[in-house]
Amino acid sequence: MPRINEKVSYWMLVAPALAIMVIFYIVPVLGIWKIAFTEPETGVANFVAMAGSNAVKTSFIITFRVAAITTIGCLILGYIVAYAISNFASKFTPLMVALVILPFWVSVLIRSFSWIVLLGRSGIVNDTLKGAGLIDAPLRLMHNETGVLIAMIHVMLPFAILPMLTNMRGISGAYVQAARSLGASEWTAFRQVYFPQTMPGVMSGALLVFVLSLGFFVTPALLGGGRVLMISEYITYQIQEFLNWGLGSALSVALLIATALVLLIAARFVNLRSALLERK
């Protein structure tokens, strides 16, 4: 049997996935770039229109604000969950991890509709609060940013927990024990010894959630009810309602560049390779 060069066999292993990525992803993305610069006429007219539009500006601000608040919310809640799983629940660890992953088995669409059932004017939350006599009129829990944030944090939470959990489970309990034996209180040991070691997990969770949130569509569209127009929904409007492929594509390009900028800026502060690949 002829020996295949190691490099060649490596590329042969990667080739199928690479081909799919190129044909069905890279080429269409390039197509979008082309449309952005050519429809309805060649030039940067779409980008000029975009820059001059207050609606686009508002949408970008909402997008970044929702993504940022979602990220912070996911980090705080996720850190606590990851910490509890990796430090206390030895017997229940597999169950707890399963519960974190479980939502992945349910479609985002179903999960978002479930939040509508929960948060609507006569949804379960409002009915319960009214029944308990805590409120007179139903609270506005959806079709606004509050609703979008609640559902977004829920949908994104596993993406924050998993990298942090992987990171924390790799931290030996000996570090905190060592800190305690050297005279540090539980809190000091956590703050000065444990927490700094969890930063790679926190950073990789933050990046994952933030970048995914920037381009998220289903949840903001359903829970926002058209009132919280994040950029991906704005793009859909431009293309589906106004058939304005040029502006829609230009917005996509802008979102892609914005996301790339976020990663670039993040790269100045964290080691992306270890944050996203090695998860150590």
Binding site: S172, A174, Y175, S181, G183, S185, P196
Partner: peptide
């Protein structure tokens, strides 16, 4: 609690921070 016992400890895996 361990932090008030005033014992130095050297761990198997060193546990340097």
């Amino acid at each position: 609690p361990p932090e008030h016992r005033d014992f130095g400890m050297v761990f198997q895996g060193y546990a340097l921070f």
